[in-house]
Nucleic acid binder design. Sequence first.
DNA 1: GAGTTAGTTCCACATAATGGAACGATGTGG
DNA 2: CCACATCGTTCCATTATGTGGAACTAACTC
Lengths: 267, 267
Amino acid sequence: MNREGLSSPRTENSGTGTLGKALSVLEIVVSSDRPLRFSEILALSDQPRGTLHRQLSHLVEEGLLIQGRDLCYEPGLRLLKFAYRSWSKNQFRAVAAPHLRKLHEETGETVHLGVLRGTEIIYVDKVESRQTVRMESQIGNASPVYCTGLGKAALSVLPQHRLAETLGKLTFHRFTANTHLSVASLKRDLDEARLRGYAFDREEHETEIRCVAAAIHGAGFDLVGGISVTGPAYRVTMEQLEIWAHPVRQAAVAISEDVEVRLGPGR
Amino acid sequence: MNREGLSSPRTENSGTGTLGKALSVLEIVVSSDRPLRFSEILALSDQPRGTLHRQLSHLVEEGLLIQGRDLCYEPGLRLLKFAYRSWSKNQFRAVAAPHLRKLHEETGETVHLGVLRGTEIIYVDKVESRQTVRMESQIGNASPVYCTGLGKAALSVLPQHRLAETLGKLTFHRFTANTHLSVASLKRDLDEARLRGYAFDREEHETEIRCVAAAIHGAGFDLVGGISVTGPAYRVTMEQLEIWAHPVRQAAVAISEDVEVRLGPGR
DNA sequence: GAGTTAGTTCCACATAATGGAACGATGTGG
DNA sequence: CCACATCGTTCCATTATGTGGAACTAACTC
């Protein structure tokens, strides 16, 4: 808690001692879209060689990484195992699941459940539009808050100080022609969303993809997330989204209430 | 590598220094089926209070755990994020995916892809039987080798020494009336599987669930896994499984070859 | 086969983890 | 309502662990 400014007045110590460093190395490997060589990781991290080498060995020994032939490092299976356990027992997901299904039946399109974590929305569950193409599961995927319906819905209900804090940490990246690129324009959007009670994604993250989303927040604001209906632009017009906005919002409210009851003060 | 017997002649140091300890704490929380209190974790770990408390704080700071109201610890979202990235970019899975789909079309039942890790099979991908009930995704789930078709198929192709090593580490648990409970009986089953080229699960893990599986092994034996077709006993008889055995084995061979080519010496 | 780059090992040193003990907070029963 | 017990958190001297520069080896390159 009071780690800042202890050892030397500046350091802004990012990372929790040894664990933090190990995880940032892990993150480098996991974030890459192909197996990495030692020196590539070395270039991406700011660790000295000896240190990095030992950290990697440890991660491999623990099964968080595997080292294939040709000395490349890739994510290990133990990560999957961890995630399975945490996902399958996630209470928030379990509480929300029936509402997702209901919303899916009402709209026929893909429904997502996401949770706000820092400046990202992490997808926790979904019900797919139909079985046509086996879409890659989004579960566990993280998207920036500023260009997703879920992200904007979640932000729009944050209390002042937490919103300011989050906005301060944003760095923008242009995904499409419609992506917000400044705090100012994002803020205007959030204001509208707050008034309406729901947020849109007008092809801001991917072209030809639109969505409506509404926020969920548990007791206090320790858990903030949202639920959304997403579809391809050719069959999901903005008018259609306006129509779905109501059921989406209802579902979000229902989940919030359920969360309150099932995960709230009593237990 | 040469960590054993350094500091004090015995210690059999399980765990990679600080990281290993942190992970074993994480494992305790993640393995539990409900959020745990500090003292519960304390009882399950063999760490002193002060130490454990700091480790937990670090895990929370890193987002691997979250501490809900009432001071309970639960798995954090960062785990999901890690897993998503590693799953979606897993080359083995990508190579095998078309074969899974093909096998699913041929059989109409659920197809699983798994990898051997220690004494467990970890499910890496699947294609579901049909969309009736939204079955909990098994991806990332770990099951014991000795009571699953995939596990036995994988074991049956292991070289002598690795098999012996793995068998030595097994501890048996009776899941159903048919579960193997001794190395001897498991070995007989493996011998048959080795001869045939495929393995069965005769309701050994869950009653009313049967499967056929065949092994996949990449270059050398650094990657051993399998593919299986699973179904409920009422519609999947042993005779049916015998019929499917052939396509399953073919798919396994095809995947092995693809893996060899796509992930083999060339890259 | 000399030169370059990538990967691994080593070890004196300093930092970060350790764990016993003291301190609050919470809650339980007499 | 107060004594007592349990649970969670904080503190700090000790030391185990991680650190990182440098020396070493292996693997490519020209």
